[in-house]
Each structure stands twice: as structure tokens, then as C-alpha cells.
């Protein structure tokens, strides 16, 4: 048993002694809090909900599960908490479900769990319920097996007076992005393709940045984290939901030089690269400069800048997202189609 104890086996999911050990030595050890420690079937929250509760749920699948700048545990907290923040909510509690593949190193699992706990603490949320299941390894021979998937849900309360929504963008608003695009996507693809670089995932909790905007009276019409599908996809969603046109300025789109080169080599476009710690805020134009300054004073908003503006729906193409290019032309920006794979052509 000693050797097997280092890796996840079906026994860890069977509900017997191995399961209990895993609960105690890995999850209990790092997630411990008054609510979770009661080990009940459900968490009774000491929470008198005065404001409207906001709920969000997400699933996390990433290979490799540990990468420069984060891991799947940190990612799951950031992703879930950021979704609540984008709604103008104060995040309070998280639940998480782990699906472990046979063969996963328990030491790896513990690192992921510890990182998840640390991220939750930093975000000011409590993990109040959880579950674990073990599945047969689905890995193909070259992929090593031992994977790990996480499902997470979060709940929080809506801040007073805050009603940012993807359908609230208005003509005359400015589009502000919190920083450089594409870091997470480039980091993960590099790891998968064996490309050496020091590009780190931007995986981060955006609370400091959103708090700074809302606490200082910025009338934020829309907030969105720029995750899967990238900026192009997110802006198309907003344009459709708000029934507006979006016009970006090419020279203002911030991309790290290393990521730009990575995209050049792989034939990728930073506008469609996923991020895990970037957001856009759409605010009245007259507040844009102040919003940028407030964001820049936070760790997760240091490279914030105005990248475009919201216009009336255009006659021919109501919800167009377009970009003014360096040579003075216009490029249409569509939502990502397909998977955003490296290409040679």
C-alpha cells in the first residue's frame, strides 16, 4: 500500500478509509474552516442575505495542470471569483468538485489544493463544500495520465448600486482593458508544445481592480473578464447584448513583446487568445481617464488603457466590432471561430 499511497487509485474514490485519509490529509488540511470542518452533507452559511445573491459556476480543464504563474487550483478560484466580481458582486463562498484520474500523484494534488486555498484566502472567500470522485485514466499513451478536473461554484452579494451588465454598454462609452492580452494562452500552449520562454499565465483575482473602480464612484456600465475566446469574442458578445457597435484602435491594443512573437511564430492572433486575469471595463468617456488611473494603481491593472469606444449601432451591421488599423483602414473583428490552433498558413 505504501507505494500506491503516493498516487490516486480507485480506492480513493470508494468512500472507505483511503477516501477518508485523502479528505483529512489533503483537502481538510488546506481548506479547513468552521463551516467545512463540520463535515455535513451541506454547508449552512452564517449569512443573512440582505443584498441580492449572485451565483456563478464554472468547470476547469487545463493541461498541464501546473504551469508558470499558476495551476488548475488557482485557476478555478480566479475564474469563479472573477465571474462574480464582473457582476459587481462581493464574492463570499465557493464550493468545488474534484474529478481525479487514477495515477495522479497525491503530492501534485496537494500542491493544487494548497494553491487553491491560498488563492481563496487572498480573494476573501471561504470554500464551504466539496466533493471528490476518481475516474479511470482516459489518457492516451503519450499524455501520461493522472489528470485532474475541477468544477467550482461561487456565491456572493451584489454591491449596493452596482449593476454592471453585458447589456449596459452605451454609445459614448470608452472601452478600457486592464492589461496585456494573451499571456495565459501563450503560456499553456508553450508548455504543451515544448517551447521554452518565460511567459507566465496572468491567472489572478481581479478584486483589487474592480473594487478600486466601484469604490471610487466610477459608473461602470460593463465589466467582463477576457477569458476563453479572447477580446474579440468578448466584445462581440457585448456588442450583441447591448445592441451597439464597438470601435477599437489597433495601436492601443496592449500585447507583451514575447507574446507577440509567440503569436507570430504560431500564426495566432492575440485578439483571440484566452486570459485568466484580464478584464475590460466599459465606462462613460468622461470617466475613462480616471478609471485607467485607478486601474493602473492596482497590481492586476498596471497596463490598463483605453482601447476603443462604443458607438450607435451602425445601419448595415448593427453590432459590428471593428478596429481602426495602423494604415487607417478598418478591420472587422469577429468572435473566435473554431479552436484557435497554431497554423502554418
Amino acid at each position: 500500500m505504501k507505494e500506491n499511497a503516493k498516487k490516486i487509485t480507485q480506492a480513493h474514490g470508494a468512500g472507505g478509509r483511503d477516501s477518508a485519509e485523502l479528505m483529512r490529509d489533503v483537502f481538510g488540511k488546506h481548506f479547513s474552516n468552521n463551516i467545512l470542518d463540520k463535515l455535513e452533507d451541506g454547508a449552512v452559511l452564517p449569512w443573512n442575505v440582505a443584498a441580492r445573491p449572485v451565483v456563478s459556476t464554472d468547470s476547469f480543464v487545463v493541461k498541464p495542470i501546473e504551469f508558470r504563474g499558476g495551476d488548475i487550483g488557482k485557476l478555478s478560484v480566479c475564474g469563479t471569483v472573477n465571474d462574480l466580481l464582473m457582476m459587481g458582486a462581493i464574492p463570499k463562498y465557493l464550493t468545488c468538485g474534484f474529478v481525479l484520474e487514477e495515477g495522479l500523484e497525491i503530492a501534485t494534488l496537494e500542491r493544487v489544493v494548497a494553491s487553491m486555498a491560498a488563492t481563496a484566502r487572498a480573494a476573501g472567500v471561504l470554500i464551504v463544500a466539496g466533493d471528490t470522485k476518481v475516474i479511470e485514466s482516459s489518457a492516451k499513451a503519450n499524455e501520461g495520465g493522472g489528470g485532474l478536473l475541477i468544477g467550482a461554484s461561487g456565491i456572493g452579494s451584489l454591491r449596493d448600486g452596482a449593476t454592471p451588465s453585458a447589456s449596459n454598454a452605451r454609445p459614448g462609452d470608452a472601452v478600457v482593458v486592464s492589461g496585456n492580452l494573451g499571456d495565459h494562452h501563450a503560456c499553456i500552449l508553450s508548455a504543451r508544445m515544448g517551447i521554452e520562454n518565460d511567459i507566465a499565465s496572468d491567472c489572478a483575482i481581479l478584486r483589487e481592480t474592480t473594487d478600486s473602480l466601484l469604490d471610487n464612484g466610477i459608473d461602470v456600465h460593463v465589466m467582463r473578464d477576457v477569458t476563453r475566446g479572447g477580446l474579440g469574442t468578448v466584445l462581440n458578445e457585448i456588442a450583441a447584448l447591448s445592441d451597439v457597435t464597438v470601435e477599437l484602435s489597433e495601436i492601443d491594443i496592449p500585447v507583451n513583446a514575447g507574446v507577440a512573437a509567440f503569436c507570430g511564430v504560431m500564426g495566432l492572433d492575440p485578439l483571440y487568445m484566452g486570459n485568466e486575469g484580464k478584464m475590460i471595463a466599459i465606462v462613460p468617456k468622461e470617466q475613462a481617464a480616471r478609471a485607467v488611473n485607478l486601474m493602473r494603481a492596482t497590481d492586476t491593472g498596471r497596463n490598463a488603457r483605453v482601447i476603443g469606444e462604443i458607438l450607435l449601432p451602425s445601419e448595415r451591421d448593427r453590432n459590428l466590432v471593428a478596429m481602426k488599423t495602423k494604415v487607417g483602414g478598418t478591420r472587422r473583428i469577429n468572435a473566435l471561430f473554431g479552436e484557435g490552433l497554431p497554423r502554418i498558413c
Binding site: 488599423t325 495602423k326 494604415v327 487607417g328 478598418t330 498558413c345
Partner: peptide, 29 residues
Amino acid sequence: GTHTAGIYKSGIRDILSPTIRLISGPGCP
């Protein structure tokens, strides 16, 4: 095809006089 894509990305088509028409050839493997 990489030129076609680059031309669109750069927005050049958009600034060309109507007397200049760009057409795409068989350059996509």
C-alpha cells in the same frame, strides 16, 4: 492566402480607391 489575411487585418482594402480591386488567388494549401 497569408497575404489575403494580412490585407484584411491591415484594413488596406478599406482605404483603396474603387478603381483598385484586390482579388484572391489559389494560395491556400
